[in-house]
Design a protein around this nucleic acid. Structure first.
Lengths: 210, 210
DNA sequence: TAGATTGTTAATCGATTAACAATC
DNA sequence: TAGATTGTTAATCGATTAACAATC
């Protein structure tokens, strides 16, 4: 399905947005779109859209444009949404709970199969129809269920050690809500950071410099 | 304090990370650091660090390097952390509540002064020591208190209309947790998106392509 | 067929890295 | 002073945009 070349991170970053816009077009019953029309809706250039899509294959047709539904499905494939990634939640405090219970993981290509904490007030409780286990169960759980991804909603101080443990247990992707820089120590795994405070500081900068 | 030139968004994106690392160094009691040493800790090049910092002024000293505390303070200034931005929370559901109650806004240059919702179960309740007001109060509140930033924790469908209203009431910065693309309709204001699902889809892509 | 729009190559632009003179 | 390290210019690299032949 994919050309054998490295996709630049600039392109990867734009894929979810394409997916979102195409989903919207689909919902609106639009079946066909040209790169020019899509570009004007997304405030991009038509060139960029065609270049981006052509990293993965020639999905369009000269003189016609792109079939919305087909392109939507292709991007879902590219993003790997149709092959669920098994994931575990590490840390089920307030943030971990909100994340676990409010994301539609299935629609995003994930399957949340476990949750871990050390707080006795949290261990045993039900979150997103999963029973929270004690961290002591982690090793056994991973051997049995072989999760691929971990969602890190732990206090900063606990992340370093936990990330080390998780990579040793075969985790290959981290969705990281903490400030700890997992990628520094584990360059071999995939890391996506959700740094609330970084975005907020950038907003502060932008507001004060405009 | 700042050179009169446009700072590229690549540089802006890195600033909070510099700030974080310098804070860490400060905590560790390290008072002096060279661009080379900092680069190796952050996995950047020394050149990039020196180029980035020189957008804002010559903070270093030849033969010595940078004074950690001084540089930390300078970056805080650059980010505008010392001049609190007045902000309001729009939408006090589960996500809005967690965000409001768990961020240390003061340390990040913000002052949360109001919160709005339409749900009668939420209006009137206390969140992060702020009483949640009904959306009907928004106009009056903004005229009186002149907030600069709005944190958007609303359902996607409500965002378009609310963002329109907010810009008319003088809001110049949005911290956006919804999927709605505020920047498209309001190119004049600052927008920082926290798109949970975008980062998750990117993670899916990376896991499946490594 | 004629018109439209892609896929793709070439040109431009911007960001990163390297190099080095200035200087503490 | 000699050594270290910056600030800054120049070279390289990569990403974006423009152009256009291919083709539906």
């Amino acid at each position: 399905m994919m050309k054998e070349q490295n996709i630049s991170s600039s392109v990867i970053k734009r894929l979810p947005r394409y997916y979102r816009f195409l989903g919207e077009l689909k919902k609106q019953g639009i079946s066909r779109i040209s790169s020019g029309e899509l570009a004007s809706r997304m405030k991009l250039t038509a060139s960029q859209i065609r270049q981006d899509l052509n990293c993965f294959g020639g999905f369009g047709q000269q003189g016609y444009g792109y079939n919305v539904e087909m392109l939507y499905d292709k991007i879902a494939d590219i993003l790997g949404i149709n092959i669920p990634t098994k994931a575990i939640m590490m840390g089920v405090g307030k943030l971990g709970t909100v994340v676990a219970e409010n994301m539609d993981f299935n629609k995003l290509g994930f399957n949340l199969i476990g949750a871990f904490d050390i707080d006795p007030n949290v261990v045993g409780k039900q979150v997103a129809s999963i029973k929270v286990s004690h961290l002591d169960e982690l090793k056994k759980f991973c051997k049995t269920n072989k999760p691929d991804a971990a969602f890190i909603c732990l206090p900063d101080a606990a992340v370093k050690e936990t990330a080390q443990k998780l990579t040793e247990l075969g985790i290959t992707g981290f969705w990281n809500f903490s400030h700890h820089d997992i990628a520094l120590e584990h360059p071999e795994v995939a890391v996506e950071n959700v740094h609330f405070s970084d975005t907020l500081m950038r907003l502060s900068f932008k507001i004060k410099n405009s």
